[in-house]
């Protein structure tokens, strides 16, 4: 599978080291449609390719948005692109958030750090089909205020009457007047009906486990908790072996997975 050229149309700094790129296919090419939860492989010319969270584009009208944190040579090259530059893109790959299954009930979205990025298209989908869902709750935890993603959009969401969004940080600076603690605290405080709730979680693996545990304490059955997992995807089509997690290829069976199907494997260290 070869990457297809896409043009960077805009680049927005989210935090000191994280950027959101908006991409458009070259003229005459079709925009690949990523379902919420799916991921893409983004290629920086001559440097390499990495899996990236698609943080926007559930619809053909939006540009495709990818949120990238600069941690290695490829992500640094991608974050350094300027509008007009061309990058390569493969995808969509992998599984999607269970948004069809979750209709008619409450949706609890638990995000940690950069984990909000792949959940953003899910939030957009739910808001675009608002009457199909019950209460919609977003619990977002981050390290500190300056490491939160999509700040302006968080403000917009906070202003909506049909969405309960709450944000909490581990470390509060003097300017932070919001909640301080871990994201599980928000799950404890949130008002939802566990008997008809679907929970979508994305973030560091430790947070996922504790998040799922808190949801279980709140009465949400584990088979209605879904997590998005990070693994070292290279080929993205289950042929290179890198992203194996027990019997699963995270690039194909994941990244979104029903929690009860991965929970036993999460308990095995260094899997």
């Amino acid at each position: 599978m070869t990457p297809r050229a896409h043009r960077v149309v805009s680049r927005r700094g989210e935090t000191a080291d994280t950027w959101t790129l908006a991409l458009e296919p070259l003229p005459g090419e079709e925009l690949p449609l990523f379902a919420p939860g799916q991921f893409g492989m983004l290629y920086a010319f001559g440097v390499g390719e990495i899996p990236i969270s698609v943080s926007g584009a559930s619809t053909a009208l939006d540009p495709l948005r990818c949120t990238v944190r600069s941690v290695g040579s490829v992500s640094a090259a991608l974050c350094a692109t300027a509008p007009g530059d061309v990058v390569g893109l493969r995808g969509p790959f992998g599984s999607r958030w269970p948004l069809a299954e979750a209709t008619a009930g409450d949706v609890v979205i638990v995000a940690g750090g950069l984990g909000l990025a792949p959940l953003r298209p899910a939030i957009h989908h739910v808001l675009a089909h608002r009457n199909e869902y019950g209460r919609v709750i977003v619990c977002y935890g981050g390290r500190s205020a300056d490491e939160l993603l999509f700040m302006s959009e968080l403000e917009v969401w906070r202003g909506r009457f049909d969405l309960d969004i709450d944000v909490i940080v581990d470390i509060a600076g003097p300017d932070w007047h919001g909640k301080v603690g871990v994201v599980t605290k928000l799950v404890e405080l949130a008002a939802f009906d566990p008997d008809r709730t679907f929970a979508l979680l994305c973030g560091p693996e430790v947070m996922l486990r504790f998040g799922a545990l808190t949801l279980r304490k709140r009465g949400v059955p584990v088979e209605r908790c879904y997590i998005s997992m990070e693994r070292n995807m290279h080929c993205a089509i289950a042929q290179c072996g890198h992203c194996q997690f027990g019997p699963k290829f995270i690039c194909r069976e994941g990244p979104v997975q029903r929690y009860d199907e991965v929970e036993p494997w999460l308990k095995i260290g260094e899997l």
């Binding site: 290629y43 010319f45 001559g46 440097v47 390499g48 390719e49 290279h234 080929c235 042929q239 290179c240 072996g241 890198h242 194996q244």
Partner: peptide, 26 residues
Amino acid sequence: CFCTSVEDTADLAGDEAERWRRWDSC
């Protein structure tokens, strides 16, 4: 055993690039 890694390279001028796939190992 089928596992591989890819290696991306570019020429010095940065105008041409290649992707190679090589056997890798768990």
